[in-house]
Amino acid sequence: MSYCVNCGVELNEDLTFCPLCNTPVVNPAAHPVSVPAHSAFPKEKGQVDVVKRKDLAILLTIVLSSTALTCGLLNLFVFNHMLWSIPIIGVCVVLWVLAIPAVIYTKFTLYSSFFLDGIAVGFYLYALTYITDGNQWFFSLAMPIVILLTLLLEIFLFLCIHLPLSSLTTALYIFAEIPIFCICLELLIDNFIGSALRLSWSAIVLTICAIIIIALITVLSRSRLRNEVRRRLHF
């Protein structure tokens, strides 16, 4: 039985500090290797259960699938002069795939859900070739861009997960990926319209981003600078 020297209250035997004034309990008479005192409170902390968004998933699935179905049927039997329902059905499918990690199946890793999103968008664009003349634009422009974007997103994700994360490093990754994307985009466009492969506007982006990247790396590598920036810009 111990008393707090400041507050004068008796303390339960498991307390090593007075909870009121934070004074440590010092009892010279106590045996140093005594049995640990029985705590009045459990050690484990509880977690609030995660709510399953099953209702939302069902609702979303029904709304999207009925939209796709009715548009498809209307296109088949009523307004059947052209394939106008393909973009609508495609959008429904893409939206549904985008909703998978949020409400339908939450156990996917971020990598695989981004991968699925990329595939869905790719298929959507491919479906559009049925209502345009030819599919040359898809194979030489749309598909490479989608693949490139998915790849860059996956790399960004990888960097964010496996390297130390802060707003400065995130900015660094973004500014490193923007010029890569722009250069590839310009080369793809040049290739598509049949002109020579030359850098023009993407070179400007590259220059600007290079300056920003060098500045960011400098700030990141000097801890004094880094802290200064964090202090001045915190929100």
Binding site: C7, G8, V9, N12
Partner: peptide, 26 residues
């Protein structure tokens, strides 16, 4: 825990014997 401290110290001053239990992580 200032309010608690002032509260219980007042009780002790008034001559009430108080025993304290807590789940606080000191």
């Amino acid at each position: 825990a200032d309010v608690e401290r002032l509260f219980f110290r007042k009780l002790v001053q008034d001559g009430i014997h108080v025993k304290i239990e807590s789940n606080r992580d000191m």
